[in-house]
Simulated scan of single mutants.
Amino acid sequence: MLACGGAHVIALTSGGGKVLTWGRGNSGQLGHGDILDSSLPKPVSFFEGYVVTQASAGWSHSAFVSDSGCLFTCGNGSFGQLGHGDNMSLCSPAKVSYFVGKSIKMVACGMRHSLVLFAGNQVCGFGSGKRGQLGVSSQKTKSVVNLPCVVSGLEDVEVVRIAANGDHSAAISANGQMFSWGRGFCGSPDVQTPQCLPSSLSFREVALGWNHALLLTVDGEVFKLGNTLNKQSEKQQDPSEPLLEKVPGFDGVKVVQIAAGAEHSAAVTESGEVHTWGWGEHGQLGFGNTNDQNNPQLVSQGSIDQRARDTKVYCGSGFTYIVRRIQQLSSS
């Protein structure tokens, strides 16, 4: 898997859970013990002897989950987003002591905050809480929280996935409900604690941008909240009710994966096709230009190797990666 942040990337190998990072390293987010950039993937020596099973990249911080359920963080900690009880930045990964013995399932990094899902289906948040993205009650809200605090309102929810980006946070429950909190979409008020999206649809995945969210249903349909181009929808809406709209262009096509950058979106169909749309100023849509696209457009992947399986797409703030697993041919 990959995890793409503000301007850095984390890669986990499929064989032994090894970690490689590259990109901007000015806050120590690459975990190499320095604050240098790296233009090529470089192994994170700290994790020799560990098997890392999941990772997430924020704007300038990184988080890693080991197969033993431990959480490690590094990078910019000035908003407490590393969870170590201070606002210090770290250029090498360090274990978050709060979660020792708690068996981490998943971590998600936003711009300046982090979310953690751990055993018991509990969710914690730490870092910047200015827009409500930590999910604590308004009476307890602080601009900076440097120790993990339990997200309010999810105690009776079986959470199976979490997501974070910008000042947004979200969770998917086992029965397909989507909960979100933090900065409001399309001018809606900020939400201090998780609110369930009123919908009869059953969701299995959520991807967050800075001004929008993508939702993937169990049937392979894609919906959106907000707008990837940071423009108000032409439809009138009650600012207290987020507007859920079906993404056009996928009629009769099953989508199997979604991803969101700062202001662009991507989706993979069942046949392995990749579609992108939204902000294109940095060429992140993959069409050889810097034009914006209001609706999904097919990305040419050249001559696809017939051995290719399991196409995945990953979005950073202003860049995109497509990863295709190649099935090895038998020597016989």
Rank of each mutant, 00 (worst) to 15 (best):
N291W: 14
L147A: 10
N26P: 00
C109Y: 08
F203C: 09
L40M: 05
I35M: 09
T311S: 00
P189N: 06
W59R: 13
L285C: 06
F46S: 04
G80S: 07
T311W: 15
S331P: 15
L154K: 04
V160G: 09
A7D: 09
L147N: 08
I35N: 06
G28D: 05
V274R: 01
M111V: 02
G25K: 01
S173N: 05
G127Q: 06
C149K: 12
G153N: 04
L216E: 07
P43C: 10
S128M: 13
K224A: 12
Q81G: 05
M178C: 15
V274F: 12
Q327R: 14
L40D: 15
V299R: 03
G101L: 07
S317W: 15
H212Y: 10
W210S: 00
G15A: 12
L134D: 06
V222T: 03
Q133M: 12
M178Y: 07
V52M: 05
W279T: 00
S62H: 05
Q301L: 15
L225C: 07
D156S: 07
Q236M: 10
G33H: 03
A213G: 09
L244M: 11
V107C: 08
D86H: 11
G17I: 09
W210R: 13
D34W: 02
G166A: 05
S89M: 02
I162E: 07
F46A: 10
L115S: 02
Q192K: 13
Q306N: 04
S332V: 15
C124K: 02
T217Q: 06
S45W: 01
G17A: 09
D156W: 02
K254C: 14
L40C: 15
S114C: 14
L36V: 04
G31H: 01
H168A: 08
L147F: 09
V206M: 12
G187W: 08
N291H: 13
V222R: 00
T193I: 08
V107Y: 04
S265Y: 08
S45V: 01
I10S: 02
G75Q: 01
E273C: 13
K42A: 14
R324I: 12
G49H: 06
H168D: 03
Q306T: 13
R309N: 03
T269Y: 06
Q177N: 14
G302P: 11
Y98H: 14
Q81E: 13
P189Q: 03
L244E: 07
Q327P: 10
G25W: 03
Q293C: 09
D238I: 11
C70E: 14
V313D: 03
T217Y: 08
T13A: 13
A57Q: 05
G278V: 03
V136S: 11
W210I: 01
S202K: 09
N211F: 14
K142T: 07
G302K: 02
C149T: 00
